[in-house]
Write a protein that binds this DNA or RNA. Structure first.
Lengths: 125, 125
DNA sequence: CGGCTGATTAGAGATTCGTCTAATCAAGCT
DNA sequence: AGCTTGATTAGACGAATCTCTAATCAGCCG
């Protein structure tokens, strides 16, 4: 049972975000607020095996390798993904806990009253 | 403390976003990827009655009125909020359907099999 | 070793963004 | 009408962002 207890703050519609919470979430959101990075994140996240080689990513865009590298760094700095070099290639994977923070910020809005113990609590990080 | 069991993936991790879907979501995310706008959105969204007067918003920040107005416009242009003038004051409220799009992007795909059809996939383009 | 492929870092150029001041629009006074 | 208060628009300016080319780092193999 995926009990999502992460999240740094209450969902957006429950109570006003504190200044610091807003700043923290904004940096996370900024990392994702780019078409290329969004696609990168979804490619990495949806890749079978949970890992993706950079070499597979660069080919999917009409951008130079350094540019892709830059976007990956932004995502990694934000904590949304992590990476490791294995021999010649570098592999990236998603960090679900951090991605879940983003979802927790917005979801309770639309969800039909979470029927279960899916407590998206206000546990701080 | 926060045992992060989160399923394997968020919707973003279900399949790679198309280029157009990524672009659409990115514009939405960009609108929210700012501390001030995040706080504005949460203030409006959590306000009792569902509406908030601009006059209540400007006082909460150390920014000039035009700046707040600018941020509200960004949110409104993105479709996340809507507004109406009633007499002297202008009132803003949240548009839940659009905010939900953001949540749907990152929220874990609900519990394993038990719950079943928690359709989160309204990310149609 | 020397060279080759994959990936990142460094730095530059153009665009976008956040904030401000000044000016304008809207509604309600006196 | 003319003044006052609330809100937005217009324009300017510095900071941040995205992309590129050139250079550098890390493994592999002839």
């Amino acid at each position: 049972m995926a009990d999502v207890t992460i999240a740094c703050c209450a969902p957006i519609a429950r109570e006003p975000l504190s200044e610091s919470a807003a700043a923290e979430m904004a940096t996370l959101l900024k990392a994702v607020a780019d078409p290329v990075r969004l696609r990168l994140l979804s490619m990495i996240g949806s890749h079978a095996g949970g890992e993706t080689c950079v070499c597979d990513l660069t080919d999917a865009f009409n951008l130079t390798a350094p540019t892709i590298s830059h976007h990956l760094k932004v995502l990694r700095t934000a904590g949304l993904i992590d990476s490791e070099r294995r021999g010649t290639w570098v592999y990236y994977w998603i960090v679900p806990a951090v991605v879940a923070k983003l979802g927790a910020l917005f979801t309770p809005l639309a969800e039909p009253a979470s029927a279960g113990p899916v407590d998206v609590g206000l546990v701080t990080v």
